[in-house]
């Protein structure tokens, strides 16, 4: 396995029969298209991560209103 991992095969050569854990076929070779590093632009990942950061920002804002303005001073030290 060393060869596959350590050698940098930047061209996609990974096409073939893939199976579910129980042995049934997952990928249909007919619709398979092989995408190399240059051909692939992870714009869907960008979209998902932007959604995540938006949720984070909204939750931080929500927390500010509920926990700080909603309660008295928090005594520290």
């Amino acid at each position: 396995m060393t060869a596959t991992e350590a050698e940098a095969e930047t061209d996609s050569a990974v096409v073939g029969e893939e199976t579910y854990a129980d042995g049934t076929l997952v990928r249909d070779p007919d619709i398979e298209e092989s995408l190399s590093q240059d051909e692939y632009d992870p714009k869907g990942t960008l979209a998902l991560l932007l959604v995540y950061f938006l949720i984070l920002a909204l939750m931080w804002t929500y927390m500010y209103f509920v926990e700080f303005l909603g309660n008295g001073a928090t005594v520290i030290g």
Binding site: M1, T4, E5, E7, A8, T19, G23, Q37
Partner: peptide
């Protein structure tokens, strides 16, 4: 179990990068 090869596909951007 059938067809359980243990090879994992290489990374798009490999360790040489």
């Amino acid at each position: 179990a059938r067809n359980l090869d243990s090879a994992l596909p290489p990374a798009l951007s490999g360790p040489d990068q």
